[in-house]
Design a protein around this nucleic acid. Sequence first.
DNA 1: TCATGGCTTTACATTTCCATCATATCGCGG
DNA 2: CCGCGATATGATGGAAATGTAAAGCCATGA
Lengths: 122, 122
Amino acid sequence: MTDPVATDPSSFFSTGHPLYEVKANLFKGLSHPVRVRVLEVLSASPSVAVGDLLADTGLEASHLSQHLAVLRKHNLVTAERRASQVYYRLAYPEVADLLTVAKALLVHILATTQRQLDAATS
Amino acid sequence: MTDPVATDPSSFFSTGHPLYEVKANLFKGLSHPVRVRVLEVLSASPSVAVGDLLADTGLEASHLSQHLAVLRKHNLVTAERRASQVYYRLAYPEVADLLTVAKALLVHILATTQRQLDAATS
DNA sequence: TCATGGCTTTACATTTCCATCATATCGCGG
DNA sequence: CCGCGATATGATGGAAATGTAAAGCCATGA
């Protein structure tokens, strides 16, 4: 089932990968707290400098940079250099939609699991 | 047979995990081709037996079962035993929404990268 | 109750991912 | 041209996810 080739996220697009593989790959790009955090910040402001992201998240520069690289390879963000700083933005507004829907789902899951917890401990 | 011990991923709910960690954890649950495939099948029919999933995917039973366990732990699906078979269904309709939005995003990404490819090779 | 089909869990080797540190590049002021 | 602030890329050890195979339930029917 797994394709031996194509470890580069962008290569999932050209060749004949079934859609569910491409989708899974997309979710993999979103499956890290730092990356979600960055995308949330970028969802709020149209364009954010790396320095601001550093301040917001309190991460080490190289650590953040690595995750930004992942987001870039997954085509979720774009980077633009202005003067000596680099500004990131969401590559597509649908990225923010994905986070919104995820949040909606989580609210429901949380409500249900909380209810189950209450029922169990009462 | 409802989830004897819901351990790892659900522990993200009770304690004070920031939302972006919970979200990342959700996406991690979706970040495998087999699991996406299963969720797609479950999005199409309200309830599907494991045997049908096996037939649809062509996977080995234990392999599929492992991924079903992951989906259960992430509270994305629920399992119900009827007679000798086990039927799965989406735990929330929002799970299907997530796949829909992901697809919409991918369509856009694909269109853009394809356009860039065309521009580069012409 | 024993055997069998249907599904799950366990165990373990392997691949992949992640955090940390070191090193390299890019733009700009001096 | 040189150094400096701002980012990016490499390399490495360790943790987590994955695939494979074997063994373990649970229900049903002989």
